[in-house]
Simulated scan of single mutants.
Amino acid sequence: MDLSWSELLVVGIVALIIIGPKDLPGMFRELGRFTAKIRAMGREFSRAMEQAAKESGVKDVADDLRKVTSPSAMGLDAVRSAADKFEKWDPIKNAARPSTPAATPLTPPPMPPVAAATAAAEATVAEHAAPVGPNTAALYQKQAERKAVVEEASAKLRAISSPPDATPAAEPKKPGRRRKKPEGPAGDEA
């Protein structure tokens, strides 16, 4: 029942007028007992149904079915977390921090980003046979610029992580005694 306080007040006034002030407390007492009996019967019915389900094994089957269909049991939690990580991954940010050093030889330095981006954008536009509009060309340009930035960053990382050139270093001087310079012919005094 969804009654507001104003509706309950109207019902109370009507009950007071119809039943009278002497019989009103007794009527509310009987109404309270009646609702208590209905609630007790409802609880008893619920307990009986739960007991019957427990005895017949329906509850165990329902629990097993709930466990089997849970996302964690089917591995969907791992899939969801992997998808979240993939969506949050940014190759440009992560290019600056390699997880393991790469063991690749040095490659020649890449073209400047603008020239590489322009060349890549022109190549991408040339690949498509249909003419493209200015928005599509701008999109190709933006993608090419991003690709150039990523390639430049990866080339820098390769250069940083590769071993230095194996050029022979100058031999360090050995510590020892200093030799005196000869002062010229013996007995020469100036």
Rank of each mutant, 00 (worst) to 15 (best):
K54R: 14
K54D: 14
S56Y: 00
S56V: 02
S56M: 05
G57W: 01
G57C: 02
V58R: 09
K59E: 13
K59T: 15
D60L: 10
V61R: 14
A62H: 07
D64G: 14
D64I: 03
D64P: 00
K67R: 14
K67C: 06
K67D: 13
K67G: 03
V68Y: 10
V68R: 11
V68C: 01
T69S: 08
T69V: 06
P71Q: 03
S72P: 00
S72L: 04
S72V: 09
A73K: 08
A73Q: 08
A73Y: 12
M74S: 09
G75Y: 04
G75I: 09
L76I: 09
D77I: 03
D77T: 07
A78L: 11
V79Y: 07
V79K: 10
R80G: 02
R80S: 08
S81M: 08
A82H: 01
A83F: 02
A83T: 03
A83R: 03
D84I: 08
K85M: 04
F86K: 06
E87Y: 11
K88L: 10
K88A: 15
D90Y: 05
D90S: 14
P91S: 03
I92T: 13
I92G: 07
K93I: 09
K93R: 11
K93N: 04
A95F: 02
A96K: 12
A96S: 10
R97Y: 12
R97V: 15
P98Y: 07
P98D: 06
P98H: 07
P98G: 08
S99T: 12
S99I: 13
S99E: 11
S99L: 13
T100I: 10
T100R: 14
P101F: 05
P101L: 08
A102T: 14
T104C: 08
P105T: 07
P105K: 10
L106F: 06
T107C: 04
P109G: 04
P109K: 11
P110M: 10
M111N: 12
P112W: 00
P113V: 15
P113K: 10
P113G: 05
A115G: 03
A115M: 15
A115C: 06
A117T: 05
A117I: 05
T118A: 13
A119V: 09
A119W: 02
A121G: 12
A121Y: 05
E122A: 10
A123F: 07
A123D: 11
T124N: 09
T124F: 05
A126F: 07
E127G: 10
E127I: 01
A129N: 05
A130V: 09
P131L: 01
P131Y: 00
V132G: 00
G133T: 02
P134W: 06
P134T: 11
N135Y: 02
N135D: 14
T136C: 02
A137N: 03
A137Y: 03
Y140A: 13
Q141A: 13
Q141V: 02
K142M: 12
Q143W: 01
A144P: 07
E145Q: 12
E145F: 13
E145A: 15
E145P: 00
R146K: 14
K147A: 10
V149S: 05
E152D: 15
E152N: 15
E152C: 10
E152S: 15
A153D: 02
A153Y: 01
